[in-house]
Design a protein around this nucleic acid. Structure first.
Lengths: 212, 212
DNA sequence: TCAATAAATTAAACATTGTTCAATAATATA
DNA sequence: TATATTATTGAACAATGTTTAATTTATTGA
């Protein structure tokens, strides 16, 4: 009896339809303009039906964020596979992370700004030990440890450094998103280059100088 | 005839009452829970009266932001008056900026996140030439120029650097606000120290090394 | 095939928002 | 005192998220 399977599949398909429609609205009008009624109109159903497939609006937004976050992680791991030296790897990773994030501004902002207590942001977190649990931070942490594999720098200092780099990168991305229309593509690229060449690199070097 | 003056004063006082009540609600329940009706209830007036004193809710929020922004600027200029060398001045300014911002998380986030096209964020902006118009950026810019007064570094590079420092600091502050409950006071201080000692200092040094 | 059960869908309503508007009360002016 | 100005309000509107009871549709078992 494949009827149960078909039903489940249809249910998933309708959920997908709702999510895709929500994503469509987000792309067109921004995340703040996603509304249950707007989704319902587009899929030509009554608004109430949506609560048959999702608990509430937050759950829908949550799914959209999960999608966006996955895109970031995919972009990151592709940058990880390079065989450069760790310093160069760090540069490439940072650049990739920035570029991918800028391609999905709404998702990025929402994911980053909604670390409701308990549901901590999945990318960069600042609490002690966060590097162990957050994929993006962990990648950054390991990259830094590779850079300092010869010096005897404490892991806690490396974690601090990873968090500071993550927070700084986050700030740059946020500003670029917020001021989208104002920053020319040329200036934006200058900023990203300058950030990687002076902030990230500078930090790595400064840390290296202080070791012993 | 001081009647007109009294009327105007009363009008300003009622505006102040509304703004103070809104600020009170923001402090208690967060900026998202400020509502016209809630303000009206507290001051024991009908909701409609508020539109007699303000155009709309955005104008009220705008005033709250202006207040918060002024607090930041005041904190900054107090840190400016020190007679340290420019490098130390930069450190103190950055620290002060972070501390003041953390004391008014809601105002800070809202001011920073609402650079509606046309109403550009008042603190850190990334468009070309922003340093000329934004007080906080201008202070940062001048401080950097003092640091490099002997080397021949192009003003455009200094502006880039100022913007990158501002964006990074912004990112750190945002993360600390977002993860308030999760970051212990001790770890938070470690992060701020590490940020200033490696990110800001590192950047300044890296830039200094590349000059000629 | 038909009655019973389950699932999908909807209309209608509720509560909460920001906002407007016409009517009313209070005050100032002449 | 009559008039004009200002302050204040109640009621309503539109848009939001959400719930509930009713209804339509699909599935199952006899």
């Amino acid at each position: 009896m494949g009827i149960k399977e078909r039903k489940e599949r249809e249910r998933r398909e309708k959920q997908e339809l709702i999510l895709n429609t929500a994503a469509e609205i987000m792309k067109e009008d921004g995340i703040d303009n996603i509304s249950i009624r707007k989704i319902a109109n587009r899929i030509e159903y009554s608004p109430a039906i949506i609560y048959h497939y999702f608990k509430d609006k937050d759950e829908i937004i949550g799914h959209l964020m999960k999608r966006g976050y996955q895109k970031i992680l995919d972009g990151l791991s592709s940058a990880l596979e390079t065989r450069d030296n760790p310093e160069e790897k760090l540069r490439k990773m940072t650049r990739k992370y920035i570029e991918v994030s800028l391609q999905m501004p709404d998702e990025y902002m929402t994911v980053q700004l909604n670390s409701t207590p308990g549901v901590v942001s999945q990318t960069a977190s600042l609490f002690k030990g966060a590097a162990e649990k957050k994929p993006a931070l962990k990648i950054l942490f390991q990259c830094l440890r590779e850079i300092y594999r010869d010096g005897n720098i404490d892991d806690s200092v490396i974690e601090l450094t990873a968090q500071v780099i993550a927070a700084s990168t986050f700030g740059l991305i946020m500003r670029l998103i917020i001021e989208q229309g104002l920053v020319s593509a040329e200036h934006r690229n200058n900023l990203i280059d300058h950030f990687i060449n002076t902030a990230v690199d500078g930090m790595v070097q400064t840390l290296g100088n202080n070791r012993e």
